[in-house]
């Protein structure tokens, strides 16, 4: 038997210890800068509040005051009929009614110059699901933004992917250029690019579609190109030996291999764009985000709750549909 004098490598050495100490030092330094002690303080306070040692905490006070205002969600709309242009009481909107309500009005008495209140009966047009309807329409606009953005991303990413795949790019310059475009598109967050798109296309869905579309084209281009590069070389060699051109090999030997992942990527991008479409509305990109921002700024938290609930339900339903679609397409495509 040959004697083995070699020692096993220890699990750590002085380099590991130095590295760990360095990481700890950086974390401590960084924690001070980003306010980690503040988070710890407040969490400590709220945990004392929960177990009953302390009566109040800033977290629970802040959240409970908002929570009280957020519930119940607002789903109806109520409008003073005097403020509705060309109001026709014989032609009311579907499922709405007129309600007579006493309203306290305040007016300055010009003789005494004092503020006096009086009660007056005002007629209101009440639509019990009016606000919900408005939110749903805005959500549909967000869904449309997401679909169009994903479609634009797909169209842009197909040529980018071809030229960004090392084994298919015609030359190094085009490969480098294409890769740079793909990285550049990904590097600019939608929330930033939408600000520029608003300048170019104005407030509304068009700016949102372009911002989301360009950003996700960067993602799709990268994903698609990497899958082309990593596709099994065997079938490609076989078709190359038969005299196929590059695009023929790509279509017949590469696409069938990568198609399941491509479907998954497109559904992921669609899912991501749907969530982002609600966010970019906050900065002028149209859709439900714009409505959410408006209500938040007016402290109408009941309306905010309705919007958040509807977004949650729509995203959840879309998640279920895309999971089923993915299984179906990946399971049977050929």
């Amino acid at each position: 038997m040959i004697a083995n004098n070699k020692k096993l490598n220890p699990p750590f050495n002085y380099k590991t210890i130095i590295l760990v100490l360095l990481i700890i030092f950086i974390l401590i330094f960084s924690a001070q800068r980003v306010g980690i002690p503040n988070i710890v303080d407040r969490l400590y306070e709220v945990s004392l509040d929960i177990i009953g040692v302390k009566e109040t905490s800033r977290i629970s006070d802040g959240l409970s005051s908002i929570a009280n205002e957020m519930w119940p969600p607002v789903i109806e709309t109520k409008k003073d009929i005097n403020l509705i242009l060309n109001f026709d009481s014989s032609n009311l909107p579907f499922y709405s009614f007129i309600e007579n309500q006493k309203v306290q009005l305040y007016e300055t008495n010009l003789e005494t110059l004092e503020l006096e209140s009086r009660e007056e009966e005002v007629l209101f047009l009440v639509e019990p699901f009016g606000y919900l309807k408005l939110v749903l329409l805005k959500v549909i606009e967000s869904i449309e933004i997401a679909f169009w953005a994903s479609f634009i991303a797909l169209i842009i990413s197909i040529p980018l992917a071809y030229y960004s795949a090392k084994n298919y790019a015609p030359n190094k310059t085009i490969y480098f250029l294409s890769r740079s475009i793909v990285s550049g598109l990904r590097a600019i967050p939608e929330l930033i690019s939408v600000l520029f798109m608003v300048l170019a296309f104005g407030f509304g869905p068009a700016a949102g579609i372009m911002a989301l579309g360009l950003h996700s084209a960067g993602f799709l281009g990268k994903f698609f190109a990497e899958d082309i590069e990593n596709a099994n070389q065997g079938p490609q060699d076989a078709l190359k030996a038969l005299g196929s051109s590059r695009w023929r090999i790509l279509k017949e030997a590469v696409l069938p291999q990568v198609m399941p992942q491509y479907v998954a990527y497109i559904l992921y991008i669609l899912d991501r764009n749907l969530r982002m479409a609600t966010v970019i509305g906050l900065v002028g990109g149209g859709g439900i985000g714009q409505e959410l921002k408006g209500r938040f700024d007016l402290f109408e938290y009941g309306h905010v709750t309705t919007i958040i609930l509807v977004i949650f339900i729509v995203v959840f339903i879309f998640d279920q549909i895309s999971a089923k679609l993915r299984n179906k397409l990946i399971g049977n495509s050929s």
Binding site: G234, P235, A238
Partner: peptide, 10 residues
């Protein structure tokens, strides 16, 4: 080919 080199999903 040794590894058949077929397009497996076709």
């Amino acid at each position: 080919y040794q590894n058949f080199n077929l397009v497996s999903r076709s």
